[in-house]
Design a protein around this nucleic acid. Structure first.
Length: 104
DNA sequence: CCCATGACTGATT
DNA sequence: TAATCAGCCATGG
């Protein structure tokens, strides 16, 4: 599918997101550093991302919360299904579930 | 090419 | 822990 990305930047971001293993989460900042772009660009790219192959649901902000999305509620459930515990405030314990990339 | 926007981050208060 | 400010860089008009 050539509609994965219109720019190499997006492709790198999607590739990094796909590296996130099941039952684990990553922050925008992590992805941003992996691809070598700003954190906002990651969110911007994921916003434009419509590819279900990309587990963009595992990408959350530095607070451990799911970002402002209409499907935020749906995403939380999905994380729980993957084995990720959520705080009473709906936040993930980054100290435990934060994915540790090696290519950094 | 310039300006405004944005699924963010980190430091400071 | 929460709120505020400035920096970050790609995209679109």
């Amino acid at each position: 599918m050539a509609d994965v990305a219109s720019s190499d930047t997006y492709a790198r971001i999607y590739a990094a997101v796909r590296r996130v293993p099941h039952g684990r989460v990553a922050t925008y900042g992590q992805i941003a550093k992996l691809v070598g772009v700003g954190a906002r660009q990651v969110g911007y790219a994921l916003h434009a991302c419509t590819d279900p192959r990309v587990p963009w649901q595992r990408v959350i902000n530095a607070k451990g919360e799911v970002s402002a999305r209409p499907d935020a509620d749906h995403q939380r459930v999905r994380l729980l299904e993957e084995g990720v515990e959520l705080d009473a405030k709906g936040r993930v314990d980054l100290a435990k579930y934060r994915w540790k990339p090696r290519s950094k």
